[in-house]
Amino acid sequence: MSITSRAHPNQAVSQTFTAGRVGVVTGGGSGHEPAFLGYVGRHLLDAVAVGEVFSSPTAKSFYDAMVAADSGAGVACLYGNYAGDNMNVKMAIKMAERAGLTVRTVVANDDVASAPKTELAKRRGVAGEILMWKVGAAAAARGASLDEVIELAQRAIDQTRSVGIGLTSCTIPAVGKANFLIPDGQMEVGIGHHGEPGIEVRPVVSAHETANLMLDLILPDLPIVRGDEVALLVSGLGATPMMEQYILYGELSRRLQQEGVVVHRPLVGNLFTSLEMMGVTVTLMKLDAQLKADLDAPCESVGLTVVG
């Protein structure tokens, strides 16, 4: 699997793209490594627009990614719900339309802490984007039409819920000072990927209690109930030790077992980070047969590789 940066440095394109199928692209600010670049690969993203740290890529780089991923069957742009990204994607689509491309979008809004359920459209997209890309790209890989890819990616994110907690802040290098503060011994529940304010700041608790309070936010929201099968993704935000991520995973999986929820596919690691923030996001996707098949389909990238 190889990736090259074509045209200019703000864009990466997979070398495994096969002409004639729908292209799948995304884009976002830097600082979330391995997102977004690391998910370019075989049967995953075809091209990615790369922004400055925590800042939307330009409209032109979204447009370039769309052009790179288009081979006549249209382009699915699957990205996260942030003001800058929304605006730049809109202008990119305008540019793409002038160039005769067909582009449709799905906007991830999996972060339950970012707005109440009555205002789904205001919710931010976080690590659930990875699962949305996986499903959309699997559909594209098996030759689905643009409409089908969009419908499935939309279903994927509609069935996905995430929540984050932060223990320490992070610093945008160009700014040079922490962009928010969490007092020592406290944690911010519901914090966003860029340090967007969460629901509450409270004393740090054990992994067991952390797992419970995160699931208490996620499970009722969809809801996910006894008998459901899920994908469970735990992502460290940058400075969270791997051991602690696995310990949290253990507590999450125990609680889910108690609730009668079956984890079909676990993913743990620094999969969608936030510079050097200490903290974690937990993502659950409620699966049906189609979503399961698309998640299980083979893919190959730096961030996620699934063997068929």
Partner: peptide, 21 residues
């Protein structure tokens, strides 16, 4: 417009880029 759409991420690129375009 094209310069703004190419050179400025965030909100000013698409807002003013789109305006002048």
């Amino acid at each position: 417009a094209m310069t703004l759409l190419e050179g400025i991420g965030g909100s000013m690129g698409p807002l003013y880029g789109g305006f002048f375009l």
